[in-house]
């Protein structure tokens, strides 16, 4: 899409790469703090330190990741992100109102990860959470998990998982494992281990069996997130294949890494933003 009358958008630079890396470090450090500190006080009621550390750490990470990733996204990807956010919200709201223990609230994030790569997927996860928090502020603490889902979807696409459709559910389960591991301590610390719908029922079941709060919430998270991400990845991959080639080949990531199965594109490796000819 670029032409001689416009200046190229800012690309990756050492500063932006450093900011992105620091954002990832902030997520990992915050998570490590939550894991090390959580067992002491969860059942004694909400405390100040853990929740504030979680939200401060993930908040700093969100700012760093935004500053590092957002200005480098090509316009094609940027225009797709609001669509992904709306898909997350619409499908998440629909499934969230049922008693099925899956959410399907990250299909848009995974789709962007497949089409535009890890950085765009992570940014979509963060932005999705930010926009969604305008309707429901309780999703905001889960921003790090949403970013990880988008980043892992991009990574899976980068290594040809979407090209080999039979690997997509496996990538979904691996992502679900990571998402559950990230979200469980946050759910315990910020919301006292309370979840709604089928996940809440699973937690109640394990609490009735005498398990402690952390174990019950972790079990509930894995029970929900593993099948959820399996379905989410499969649906997102099916949607990516259902899109017309002229839509998918707009993305440099798809062309360069031959994300989708099919004949090789002559345009593979073109500079970013330059659209391939419609199939």
């Amino acid at each position: 899409m670029s032409h001689s009358l416009t200046v190229e958008a800012p690309r990756r630079s050492p500063l932006r790469t450093t900011l992105t890396a620091l954002g990832a470090v902030a997520v990992v450090a915050t998570y490590a703090f939550l894991i090390v500190s959580q067992p002491a006080d969860v059942a004694n009621g909400p405390t100040a330190a853990s929740a504030l550390v979680a939200l401060t750490g993930f908040g700093i990470a969100m700012v760093l990741l935004f500053a590092g990733i957002l200005p480098t996204l090509p316009t094609t990807t940027l225009a797709l992100i609001p669509v992904a956010l709306v898909l997350n919200i619409v499908l998440g709201q629909f499934v969230g109102s049922t008693l099925v223990p899956i959410y399907l609230d990250s299909i848009g994030t995974v789709l962007v990860g497949f089409l535009a790569g890890s950085a765009a997927g992570a940014a979509t996860g963060l932005l999705s959470t930010l926009v969604w928090s305008f309707f429901n502020p309780t999703v905001l603490p889960f921003a790090a998990g949403a970013a990880a889902i988008g980043a892992l979807a991009g990574l899976a696409a980068r290594f040809g998982v979407v090209r080999r459709f039979y690997l997509v559910p496996i990538a979904g389960v691996v992502t679900g494992f990571v998402a559950a591991a990230i979200s469980a301590p946050i759910a315990v610390i910020v919301f006292g281990g309370t979840a709604t719908g089928a996940t809440g029922a699973v937690i109640a079941l394990f609490r009735a069996a005498g398990q402690n709060l952390v174990q019950s919430v972790t079990t509930g998270a894995f029970t929900s997130d593993l099948p959820d991400k399996l379905v989410t990845f499969s649906v997102a991959a099916a949607l990516a294949y259902a899109l017309p080639r002229r839509s998918t080949q707009r993305f440099e990531f798809v062309r360069r890494h031959r994300v989708l199965a099919g004949p090789k594109q002559a345009a593979a490796g073109r500079p970013d933003g330059e659209a391939a000819p419609a199939a």
Partner: peptide
């Protein structure tokens, strides 16, 4: 872990 049911129409 908690999922929203509030709609965007109110915000619009």
């Amino acid at each position: 872990m908690t999922r929203p049911e509030a709609g965007p129409a109110a915000l619009a």
